[in-house]
Each structure stands twice: as C-alpha cells, then as structure tokens.
C-alpha cells in the first residue's frame, strides 16, 4: 500500500513537471508556429509576381460580384462590443444597384438605396464606380495595401478564400475578406486596427443567390422612403471650394457634393474612404472626435474672412489620421 502510494506520488510529480514544462514551452511553440507566416513578408518580392496575380484576379472577381450579383441573405454585423443581425437584399434594376437593408435587432431601421452610376465624380478621377474594376484602381489599391491569401474557410455554408489587405502605412486600417469561391462575393469582412484588433465584422449567416423579385426590394416598414440619387445628381459639376493641404498617400478625391449648408468631399484609396464636410453651422464649436462602431468623426473649425466653418472628417480611418486631415483643410483660393 505504501509502495503503491509512493509510486502514485512520483508518477504525479512526473506528470506535474511535464505539465509545467509544457506550460512554459507551449507559448514558445505557438510563437514559433506563427513566425513563418510573418516571415513570408521577407521573400515577398520573389513570390510577389504569382501572389499579386492571384489577388488581382480575386479582387477583380470581388468587384464584379459586388456590383452585378443579385442575392439576399441574413447577416451579423458586429462592432466594438455589440452585435446586430440584419436582412440584406441586393438587386439590379435598369442597370442600377438597388439595396434594401433591414435591421432585425434593436430599434427598427430600414433603408432602400438606389445608387445611380457615379454622378459625383470630379472629372478626370482615376476611380470608376468601383475602384477595383479598373487596372489603375487595382494598382493604386495594391500600392496602399499588401495582399495575402490566408487560407480558406467556410462561411454561410459556402467555401471561401480568406484574403487579407494589410495596410502599408498607419493611415488606414487593414481588412480581412472571405471571398466566396463560386461567385466572388465577400461573405465576411473584418476591419482590422493595428495589433490585430477587429473593429468591425460583417458576416453572412445565410445567402441565397436566386434572382431578387421587385417585392423584395420594397421597404417593409411603411415610412421608409427609398433614397435615390436625386440629391446626389446636383453634384455633377460642383467645383470644390476647399482642398486638403495634406492627405495620406493613396487617398484621391472621388466626389464633391454640395450640401444645403456647405460642401462635402469624398476621398478613397480604393478600399478605405473618408469624407470631409465643411459647413457653416452656427453654435457648433465642438472640437474633438466621436465614434460609432468603426466610424470616427473628427470635428474642428477654420476661420475664413471672418466666417467660421465647421470641418468634420468622417471615415473608417485611424483617429490621428482624421485629425491630421481636418487640420489640413484650406480654401482652394
């Protein structure tokens, strides 16, 4: 009996020390396990030719799918600590994209959008409707982000290729997009801040690719008015009264639009977008930032000829970048 007990004890001790070793060793093992993935960036040049060709094809398919597919589905939408579920419908009517989005959680919200084709582009813009559809747009995107194919996963019962867009500087966020193998549609997309923090995750739970009927594009909430391009239409020939003394590299002006109390200027690097609002808003002296989900708004003001203008920079961009952009707004003589 005592002998048995002794053996028990030694065995247990052996187990415990083995365990302690493993506890110490396992973080190392994990670190080593993840190291090769990071090291892949070093011989990037060598692999660039094939990898960038693969991502180019994938991005082009994604841009096509996003603009031309009809589908409906259920989606989860998470950001900083909260999750909502929503119903999305995407149809093509008269060559225009019509989207209907309805929140299934929280306060009832619904929106039907009919996005006419690129009314608000300043002439000579490098961007067509989708920044990824043209070779120039694609090249611009690839100069701002390094693209890595991270593997495969299953989303909404479909096989997807996981594509990561890693920003090449600190003025934009990264993205991880799971692209449907069959259609090229993004089934899941995450917005990634530095250190791998996920700011936002949009993910299909269920996807149906059969053609969309007219009824499905009608709002289910009676008071919902379709948002048309009507307001946007008057922006066609607007000259911007303002310009940016500095903008993060790769961000180019894609739209200028007149507002009732000012102007808004839209900038994009092909994936990320920010909008600069310059408005005359009496009694609006707030200086600072506001956040909602992954979207940040930085407010400041400038004085031009004794008049005060409120500057608001809004986008899914880092706080500091929004602040720098806001401070760089000047009048375009």
């Amino acid at each position: 009996m005592t002998m048995a007990k002794l053996i028990f004890l030694t065995l247990r001790k052996a187990n415990s020390s083995l365990l302690a070793f493993l506890l110490f060793a396992s973080p190392l093992a994990f670190a080593q396990g993840s190291a090769p993935a990071d090291n892949q960036e070093i011989p990037q040049d060598a692999r660039d030719a094939t990898a960038s060709e693969a991502t180019r094809v994938l991005l082009a398919r994604l841009a096509q799918a996003v603009a031309n597919l009809e589908y409906r589905g259920l989606v989860t939408f998470e950001h900083v600590g909260s999750m909502e579920t929503l119903e999305v419908v995407h149809g093509i009517r008269d060559g225009e994209q019509v989207e209907r989005i309805r929140y299934l959680t929280g306060s009832p919200r619904e929106k039907v959008t009919r996005s006419g084709d690129d009314q608000c582009r300043p002439s000579g813009s490098v961007f067509p409707r989708s920044g990824l559809l043209s070779a120039a747009g694609l090249q611009n995107v690839q100069s701002n982000y390094a693209f890595l194919i991270r593997g495969e996963e299953r989303v909404a019962d479909r096989e997807a290729i996981v594509l990561e867009a890693r920003p090449r500087d600190l003025h934009r966020f990264g993205m991880v997009i799971s692209v449907d193998k069959e259609t090229g549609l993004p089934l899941k997309s995450m917005l990634i801040a530095p250190a791998g923090r996920v700011l936002e995750r949009f993910q299909f739970v269920e996807l149906d690719l059969t053609p969309v009927t007219d009824d499905e594009l009608k709002p289910q909430t009676p008071s919902t008015e379709p948002t048309t391009g009507a307001e946007a239409a008057k922006c066609a020939n607007v000259e911007s009264r303002w310009r940016l003394g500095w903008a993060p590299s790769g961000f180019k002006p894609v739209a200028v639009q007149a507002l009732s109390d000012g102007q808004m200027l839209v900038f994009s690097d092909g994936l990320s977008t920010f909008t600069v609002f310059v408005q005359q808003l009496p009694e609006m002296n707030y200086k600072g930032r506001a956040v909602r989900g992954a979207t940040v708004a930085y407010m400041d003001h400038i004085d031009v000829n004794g008049a005060r203008y409120t500057v608001t920079v809004v986008g899914e961009i880092p706080d500091n970048t929004a602040q720098l952009v806001a401070k760089a707004v000047t009048e375009a003589n």
Partner: peptide, 17 residues
C-alpha cells in the same frame, strides 16, 4: 458615399442604415 465607391459591398450600407 462610401457605398457608391462600391468596393466594400454591403458593409457601408449596413453602417448607413
């Protein structure tokens, strides 16, 4: 506006709504 640029699919629409 971001939805018009269109490279992100439905996500900007979800944000707007």
């Amino acid at each position: 506006q971001a939805a018009r640029i269109g490279s992100q699919g439905m996500v900007p629409h979800a944000r707007a709504t």
